[in-house]
Simulated scan of single mutants.
Amino acid sequence: MKLKSAAFLSLLVLQCLAVLTVAQNDFDFFYLVQQWPASYCDTKRSCCYPTTGKPAEDFSIHGLWPNRNDGSWPSNCDEGSSFHESEVSDLVKRMQQEWPSLACPSSDGVRFWSHEWEKHGTCSLLNQHQYFQTALDLKDKSNLLQVLKDAGIRPGKFYSLEKIKEAIQEGVGYTPFIECNVDQGGNRQLYQVYLCVDSSASDFIECPTFPHGRCGSEIEFPSFSSLHDEA
């Protein structure tokens, strides 16, 4: 009788763990988050360029984040799944260019990519190669800098928040969420752009919900090319 009770208890524990795992991996859509490097660097925190050199003046990937319609999100869904550069060896050059780390101290990006994979990628239902390639391809598809330039919005000036949002909505086809930060002079500046992607990570969609946060009505789109090279 004791053996049957122990077996039943073990089965019940396994079932509960399975339910928790499914719940942890459950999500409704992704945020593709891209950041503007000049805004990352032009703060009191400053930045450090990657060991591969100063990135190009273009938006770069912060991450591809599974999210739920209620605003919550899963994270660290598989603690046993570590990032392995060998899994994305054919993507590393693109990742260095389009997904660089600007955090200090200077690095080759591996620590940044590891964090994104372990916190968000393990919840994406994609394998490592699929996760990183999907994010890279979605970034290229959105082509944010060209979209803004086509609307007459170029780095180095102030623009209305609505004009930036409208330009991205028209160019990409979907409404973005704009996140701002503050430069060393106290000006609010375009920092990150959130676009929503369906749960299969195949295409953009209208966002079911937006993150919290506000920008001013006029925000700076700072120039990265004019920043000194001592970051």
Results as ranks from 00 to 15, higher is better:
Lys4Glu: 15
Tyr194Pro: 11
Leu20Val: 12
Phe221Ser: 13
Arg188Val: 12
Ala6Pro: 05
Ser124Met: 04
Cys123Tyr: 05
Glu85Trp: 01
Ser101His: 02
Val19Pro: 01
Phe83Lys: 03
Phe132Gln: 11
Pro211Cys: 14
Gly80Trp: 02
Lys2Asn: 11
Gly152Thr: 05
Thr175Ile: 06
Pro176Ala: 04
Glu57Thr: 12
Leu91Ser: 10
Ala7Gly: 13
Leu227Cys: 10
Glu118Ser: 11
Phe112Trp: 03
Leu64Asn: 04
Glu57Cys: 13
Lys139Val: 13
Val147Phe: 03
Tyr40Glu: 08
Ser223Glu: 07
Ser89Ala: 14
Asp203Leu: 07
Pro155Gly: 08
Thr122Glu: 06
Leu91Thr: 10
Phe27Lys: 04
Asn187Arg: 12
Gly213Ile: 11
Trp73Val: 00
Ser39His: 04
Lys4Asp: 13
Leu125Phe: 07
Gly171Asp: 13
Tyr174Arg: 15
Tyr49Ser: 02
Cys47Phe: 00
Asn187Asp: 15
Ser75Gly: 13
Pro208Trp: 03
Ser81Gly: 05
Pro222Val: 00
Glu116Met: 03
His129Asp: 14
Gln189Gly: 09
Val172His: 05
Ser223Thr: 04
Asp42Thr: 05
Asp203Cys: 04
Lys163Trp: 01
Glu98Thr: 04
Tyr40Cys: 00
His129Arg: 08
Thr52Arg: 09
Tyr49Trp: 12
Trp73Asp: 00
Val33Glu: 13
Ser223Val: 03
Met1Thr: 13
Cys104Phe: 02
Lys139Gly: 06
Asp28Ser: 04
Tyr131Ala: 10
Asn187Ser: 09
Gly53Gln: 10
Gly216Val: 04
Ala201Asn: 02
Asn187Gly: 08
Arg68Leu: 08
Ser199Met: 05
His115Ile: 01
Pro55Ile: 02
Leu32Trp: 06
Ser226Ala: 09
Glu206Cys: 07
Gln34Ser: 11
Glu206Asp: 12
Asn127Arg: 02
Arg94Ala: 09
Leu148Trp: 08
Glu162Asp: 11
Asp28Trp: 02
Asp183Thr: 13
Val182Leu: 01
Ser225Val: 11
Gln192Ile: 00
Val19Ala: 12
Arg94Ile: 00
Val193Tyr: 05
Pro176Asn: 06
Cys77Val: 03
Asp137Phe: 02
Ser5Ile: 14
Pro55Glu: 01
Gly53Pro: 10
Cys48Asn: 09
Glu85Ser: 12
Lys141Asp: 13
Trp65Pro: 04
Asn127Leu: 01
Tyr159Met: 07
Ala231Gly: 10
Ala7Ser: 14
Gly185Lys: 08
Ser202Val: 09
Ser5Phe: 14
Ser101Asn: 11
Thr43Gly: 06
Gly109Asp: 07
Lys93Met: 05
Asp229Lys: 15
Gln133Arg: 14
Ile178Cys: 07
Cys47Asp: 03
